[in-house]
Design a protein around this nucleic acid. Structure first.
Lengths: 135, 135
DNA sequence: CGCTAAACGCAAATCACTTGCAATTCGCGC
DNA sequence: GCGCGAATTGCAAGTGATTTGCGTTTAGCG
């Protein structure tokens, strides 16, 4: 990590390391979640520092974000993002499905429209099993 | 339209009609776009009125919204939403593809995970033809 | 060590909506 | 037609999430 940063003239600060650790520990996490998590052990870290570091780490490629709901983005460690997100519009739950499920769909878009899909960046929206049964 | 509204105890105000007209005229439009469009002919309409009417019209089923980018939602007339949205993360362009393209994908999610996908609500994210060629 | 650009903390600013409220107006009933 | 109550509007203030300006601190090359 230190090297990946230094290559781009960036520094490895304690705060930056904490943000990455938090992202890795939390899975799907909003900037707020991440800040709160870090606060438990390091109360002095500033929310804007968390935002700035998420951006930096994303540029370097160590984390990335996905849009799961109407609200804000959620961040993931780069090596963890190997699934689709299935967001339920009713109960808000976030399910997962292997990327391969979308393989033929992605290929069709590539072949017919020249569009290279990044299926992990946006959520797949709909209704989960539970909510479908209920209503 | 008047009737669809009245059935629910709602009124047909000039502003409400303007909002629907604007949505139909604009295609993919943010609330801001819609307000601006209406402002050209009716400068006195308030932004919050636009937001409130979009919500109302959405409840009635005359319009609906989709999440295309990092920013806000974009609204469509209900009868126009018969396509997927292909959002380019680089140039921001919004392409379209017929819903059927996703049919097998949607079925796979339904069969394997019991998840009922609404493919129009969120965008498909990736890189468009042009941007793929360039970089 | 010393220095300088990168990164921080903090407070204020911005953005995209949302809400409270008093004034207006639609549209059913007379 | 006219009145009246509830729906709707305009305006201004309020949120929640994120960004930005800036003076201070600090990582890390030399």
């Amino acid at each position: 990590m230190r090297d990946e940063l230094r290559e781009r003239g960036l520094r490895l600060t304690p705060q930056r390391e904490l943000v990455l650790t938090a992202v890795r520990a939390l899975g799907h996490a909003t900037p707020e979640d991440i800040a709160e998590y870090i606060h438990r052990t390091h109360p002095s870290i500033n929310l804007s520092t968390v935002y700035r570091n998420l951006e930096t780490l994303e540029n370097v490629g160590l984390v990335l974000h996905t849009h799961l709901g109407h609200g804000g983005a959620t961040y993931h460690a780069a090596e963890e993002v190997n699934h689709l997100h299935l967001v339920c519009g009713k109960c808000g739950s976030v399910g997962e499905a292997p990327i391969e499920t979308a393989a033929t769909f992605v290929n069709a878009l590539a072949d017919d429209y020249g569009f290279k899909t990044d299926v992990t960046h946006f959520a797949v929206y709909g209704k989960c099993t539970k909510c479908s049964e209920e209503s």
